[in-house]
Amino acid sequence: MEYSNLISQLLKGHPRAAARLITFVENDIEAAEEIVNSIYEHTGNAYILGITGAPGTGKSTFISTLIKIYVEQGKKIGIICVDPTSPLTGGALLGDRIRMKQLFSIDNVFIRSMANRGQLGGLARATEDVIKILDAYGCDIVIVETVGVGQSEVDIFKSAHTVVVLLVPGLGDDIQAIKSGIMEITDIFVVNKMDLPGADKKIAEIQQMLEFKKNYKYDSKEISEKFAKIEQWTPEITKVNSKIGENFDELLGLIKKHKSFLEESGVISNYLKNRITNETIQILKYKLTEKVEELLNSDKEIGKYIDQAIKKSLDPYSMANLIIKMLGLEK
């Protein structure tokens, strides 16, 4: 096995081995398959925190303060910072690591920057695998941090036990952004920079938004299942000042409270079921897309179908059904 050496080092807690393995799962699904297969039994110990907030909400300072407290408690922390890939060039500037002051010892805190590489679902799968590696590496807590608050975060955060969304007083349109994206899976709303005027107003706005949500009826079965945990958990709202660590006691209490809720209410089994289902869906999506693309590019038969479609003698739905047949996936 190509990765066995690295994996045995990973399980002993070597940071370099963790970093190498992360590179492999990021770049290559076959590697990911092999690696996850070997480490899977060693995962499941880490508590996963999803943290997001629009630019300007002070995420890095917030996370730095949080890490400091956890490290003082003797915990080992992994952080995955996700930054956007430029759609034009495919490149990315990964910035957040520098914004978290490097006051942490490499033994306790492992920070890894990732570009989202802009593929549908691909990021969620890679993130899930990176979480597993950090879990097997021995992290007690894995923080997944993203820049946005939109729909793309929802997929990534399906893996998280607790999702924290950061807001700040003043910023006008952040509530709107949340409504159209991540609101339904947020467990704790945090108003950062509570020293600024308008913090309480912001809390009131969030409360108002959540009221509105209560009246909202999900009619899609899929959605209501996905958000099953929310039906019994009323999202908490708190405020902090990350610069001086103010009110973090309360925040940590809320995270704990949510953790106990998951365990005691039995929602955790629901969560795990959802997480594994989602993960499998992501992998299937990827694998099937890859297979289909391969087929589309190489199979002569399909070339003929496309010609027929151009001549209007075959419509795209019928063509898709033919391809499903070719893949042996016929209903």
């Binding site: 963790a18 190498r20 990964l94 910035g95 890894r112």
Partner: peptide, 27 residues
């Protein structure tokens, strides 16, 4: 970045240990 690479800039005032630690983690 514009050439399609994924780039991390560490900021200024990096000690050799800072740099090596970042290399270890970011690979």
């Amino acid at each position: 970045r514009d050439a399609g690479m994924e780039v991390i800039y560490t900021g200024i005032h990096q000690t050799p240990d800072d740099i090596v630690n970042t290399v270890i983690q970011e690979d």
